[in-house]
Design a protein around this nucleic acid. Structure first.
Lengths: 132, 132
DNA sequence: GGCGATTTACTCGGATAAGCATTGTCCGAGTCAGAAGGG
DNA sequence: CCCTTCTGACTCGGACAATGCTTATCCGAGTAAATCGCC
């Protein structure tokens, strides 16, 4: 399991929001400074989470980002899939499953199994667990 | 589970060798033609498998590649790790586990769990299963 | 005719470019608060 | 003194480069067999 840097940023940021959320939204710059993340890039990641309805954003002074759901209802799976795309079994190159190549079909099935297992594990950890 | 193209090439090639292995080694060009793989690139992948002691290579006329072990003793895990490197839980960016950031530690542990699960699944499928 | 050096064709092997995804950065659009001016 | 308007600063939002890894390709090193010449 190799987690992309962007996905890691998303996880840390969401956790930080959950920890610090008192009432007002958290500005992106605050998150970037605390978690040592390049501010511009962090915004790009957070926007993805906003599109996926995990975070809400507000502009203007005293604006920022906030959670849309309780922290214990947000799973690592949601965050990762929102940023990296869906986790499914895919084989590099070509998808002509019609190929008579038996090895390709079996490999695809095994990859699907791995993906399913990964999703199960990732769905068990919530932002509450990350924040502690 | 996203399988890199190179790893897929390695799996198909190894399976092809296991199927066609009568007595003499199989030339790389034969494998490339049968599996529709760019010949030059396939060689690079096969060399990796030779270094990992999964295949043996012989040069000169009537040379080629052959299995070093029985087909039912070669697992997908071996092939993939030989080409893509070890499957472990790693988080993009920095590895300063010493960070007081709790989220990072928990994330690392979850990634390790996912990696371990993936290894278990991949170790259950052998080249014999792929060839049928 | 038999033996040996040479050539030849065939293989793998490693070093070298091209393509693409991830990562990182920039400037513009939107929004609220506060200050200034007029009624 | 209060209301309206304007200005300003602060925020997110999406479009634009730089970097690294995956993928692909090329030419050189090595080997065994077949050939040709010589004994």
């Amino acid at each position: 399991m190799r987690l992309s840097r962007a996905a890691a940023y998303g996880i840390y940021a969401t956790t930080h929001i959950a920890e610090k959320a008192k009432d007002s939204p958290i500005p992106g710059q605050d998150i970037a400074a605390t978690c040592s993340i390049p501010p511009g890039h962090l915004l790009k990641v957070l926007q993805q989470l906003v599109k996926s309805r995990i975070l809400s954003s507000e502009r203007g002074p005293s604006g920022g980002f906030a959670l849309r759901k309780p922290a214990n209802k947000i799973t690592m799976l949601e965050i990762i899939e929102s940023i990296e795309g869906p986790i499914d079994g895919e084989i590099g190159g070509f998808d002509d499953i019609t190929s008579k190549n038996r090895a390709k079909g079996v490999s695809k099935k095994v990859c699907d199994d791995v993906a399913k297992s990964a999703r199960n594990i990732l769905a068990k950890t919530t932002v509450s667990d990350l924040a502690g």
